[in-house]
Computed example of a mutant assay.
Amino acid sequence: MSVLLDHLPALWQGLLITLQLTVASFLGAAVLGVLVTALRVSPVPVLRALGTVYVETFQNLPLLVLLVLVFFGFPYIGIKGPAILTAIVVIAVYEAAYVAEALRSGVNSVSKGQGEAARALGLTFTQSLRLVILPQALRTVVQPLGNVTIQLVMATALAGAISVVDLTEEANRINLVEAQPIAIFVGSGAAYAAIAGLIGLAAGWLERRLVIVR
């Protein structure tokens, strides 16, 4: 326990980086996920195909491979950025596929009559999706989106592979000096568990508040 207290400032700094990665990546994934969802439910076959290719591609590629490829490979074609920005972008792009699938399941749960009524009122596809379908879909997928967010939190631990000093990487560095892996990694693991627990509680609370009584 003393080793954790001795290195508490460093671990706290790593935790802040983890939270920064989580929030920024989730916001990016949410925006991109909505766009991909729109593609997947579009009446245009080509757009639906693009959305499907996006989801299938990123759901079947390891995140670690993408992080290493972008950070170490893209500079050869003139694309380079700070490690933390690279991690945020890659994680957001990767997790957007899972956000899109969660949202698509919500869209599919909305009665087709809602879309037909929107079209009858003269709304375009984009307007009906934004004003009618998505607001209802979001209320049904709060818990799945919470699970995706928890998955995203765990995914940020891979950012250390491209030199981002998040909580996991900070724990690794401290362990190299102190050689007390049980205390160090149990402590950092407890921090991840606490974050996941808070997200789960928040998702449960939102789900109860937004539930649609059928």
Rank of each mutant, 00 (worst) to 15 (best):
F26C: 09
A203H: 04
T37P: 02
T156G: 09
L39S: 10
G146M: 07
L129E: 00
V165P: 01
V89S: 06
A10I: 03
L145C: 06
A117D: 10
L206N: 02
V132E: 03
I133R: 00
L50V: 13
L47S: 13
I199K: 10
D6V: 00
T86C: 12
G113H: 08
V89I: 15
D6P: 00
A203R: 06
S111V: 01
L167C: 14
M1C: 08
Q20F: 13
A83W: 05
G28E: 07
E169F: 07
D166M: 10
I17Y: 07
A49R: 12
L85Y: 12
T124L: 03
A38P: 00
A97F: 08
V141N: 04
L47W: 12
L5T: 06
I195R: 03
A202E: 08
N147F: 07
A117P: 07
G78N: 13
P144S: 11
P144Y: 12
V23S: 10
A117Y: 10
G81I: 02
Y94E: 04
L5F: 09
P75A: 14
G73V: 15
P9Q: 09
T37M: 13
Y76V: 12
V148G: 05
A157Y: 05
L66V: 11
L8V: 03
T126A: 13
K80V: 13
E178W: 01
A159W: 09
D166V: 10
F74Q: 08
V93M: 03
I88V: 15
L167M: 13
V110E: 04
L145E: 07
T168V: 12
I150W: 06
L138P: 02
V93F: 13
Q13I: 09
L15H: 12
G81P: 00
L67R: 03
A49Y: 04
A83L: 05
Q20T: 15
S111K: 03
L201S: 13
Y76F: 14
V68Q: 03
A87W: 08
R209A: 15
A24D: 09
L35S: 08
L47G: 12
I162A: 07
L123H: 13
R48E: 07
G14W: 04
R104L: 04
A102F: 07
Q59L: 14
A97N: 09
A117R: 06
A87E: 10
Y94C: 08
T168C: 01
R130H: 06
F125Q: 07
E95F: 10
L201I: 15
A190E: 02
G122R: 11
V53P: 01
A83Q: 10
R208Q: 14
L134Y: 04
S163D: 04
V164T: 11
A120M: 11
L167V: 14
G81V: 05
S2E: 15
R208W: 05
I17A: 12
A29P: 03
I133L: 10
A38I: 01
F125V: 04
S105P: 04
S128A: 15
G189V: 02
L152S: 03
L138Q: 05
R104G: 02
L131G: 01
S109T: 12
G197E: 05
V142K: 00
K112Y: 01
R209M: 14
